[in-house]
């Protein structure tokens, strides 16, 4: 047993698949390692899908609780990251839906979408700033579709299911979002 103190190091560089298998067997340390590895991405993604940072952190927490309950059923541990992102997608969309039933006025992205000045955006390499601005101007339904697809890597079917619309609608919204984003980014150049 003398080398058990090496376990944190072993877990730290273990691939997702091994961590997922262990977590599926009930190993809390492995799940925590997996969660810590992907939590920043989950948080960043959730922030793009909901309207406040506090809400995003709630989504991440709920997603991780759901993930722990379900990870024994994860067939392909190498896809753990995509699986976690899928759970975040669903939770975030549900959060938005719940909020929507309460209010309609606050349905705009808050200050987290940092708007650059045109000068800033014009600086070389600032495509991401231009995108950030353009994204914040998109209608909510298009923005969601685009974020789920482009940042979350979700399929049309997954997005359709999460949003409760048809896959054809997803395609349409996505196309409109992309067209607008491309046009706006062009104007910044």
């Amino acid at each position: 047993m003398k080398q058990l103190q090496d376990l944190p190091h072993k877990l730290a560089d273990a691939p997702d698949a091994v961590l997922a298998e262990r977590a599926g067997d009930g190993n809390v340390a492995a799940f925590e390692m997996l969660a810590r590895r992907h939590a920043p991405l989950m948080r960043a993604y959730a922030r793009r899908l909901v309207n406040s940072h506090a809400e995003a952190d709630d989504v991440v927490q709920d997603a991780l609780i759901a993930a722990w309950k379900d990870i024994a059923h994860l067939q392909d541990g190498t896809a753990a990251k995509a699986w976690l992102m899928r759970i975040v997608s669903r939770r975030a969309v549900d959060t938005g839906r719940r909020r929507k039933s309460h209010d309609n006025l606050d349905d705009q992205p808050e200050a987290e979408a940092i708007l650059p000045t045109p000068e800033q955006a014009a600086v070389a390499g600032s495509a991401r700033l231009a995108l950030n601005t353009a994204l914040s101007r998109l209608p909510e339904e298009q923005r969601r579709c685009w974020v789920l697809k482009e940042l979350g890597g979700q399929s049309y079917e997954e997005i359709a299911q999460a949003l409760g619309i048809s896959a054809a609608s997803v395609r349409g919204r996505l196309a409109r979002a992309r067209t607008t984003l491309m046009k706006e980014m062009e104007e910044w150049r």
């Binding site: 920043p40 991405l41 948080r43 960043a44 993604y45 922030r47 793009r48 495509a127 991401r128 231009a130 995108l131 950030n132 482009e150 940042l151 992309r178 984003l181 491309m182 980014m185 062009e186």
Partner: peptide, 24 residues
């Protein structure tokens, strides 16, 4: 159009990198 789509995806990746950095 394809070039536009490609640079949109590239910008999305960069933006996500920024997002992850600030989330961390």
């Amino acid at each position: 159009q394809l070039a536009g789509l490609r640079s949109l995806s590239a910008a999305a990746l960069l933006m996500m990198d920024d997002d992850v950095a600030s989330a961390t």
